[in-house]
């Protein structure tokens, strides 16, 4: 987790969203902490890695069922990948 937070300190990565609420209602809304870019990168010009997904933590006694296309997202940033040179994160 610490490593993920360090990664998130870079501007490519999503940040942190921490929500602590007794009751939480979400309607037609999005909570997102995605890495950049959110769309597939141009392979002809892009040599940068996508940013890591961020961190979303929600602590609530009662979450009203999110309605109508609401979402939580912490996606990794898209990129153009032709290889797999990744390390594992263990939490």
């Amino acid at each position: 987790m610490v490593l993920l937070w360090l990664l998130n300190s870079f501007s490519t990565g999503g940040g942190k969203i921490v929500i602590i609420a007794e009751s939480f209602s979400l309607t037609e809304s999005a909570i997102s902490s995605n890495g950049y870019p959110e769309a597939i990168a141009d392979c002809l010009t892009t040599q940068e890695n996508g940013g890591t997904g961020g961190y979303i933590y929600i602590q609530s006694d009662y979450i009203y069922p999110p309605k109508d296309s609401s979402s939580f997202e912490a996606r990794g940033g898209m990129s153009c990948s032709q290889d797999s040179n990744f390390f594992s994160l263990i939490f």
């Binding site: 993920l4 999503g14 890591t52 979303i56 929600i58 609530s60 996606r75 990744f86």
Partner: peptide, 16 residues
């Protein structure tokens, strides 16, 4: 040239 690495997904947690 042209290669780049995709990122790790993030971390979501929720109580339900």
């Amino acid at each position: 040239f042209g290669n780049s690495y995709a990122a790790f997904g993030g971390f979501c947690s929720n109580s339900q």
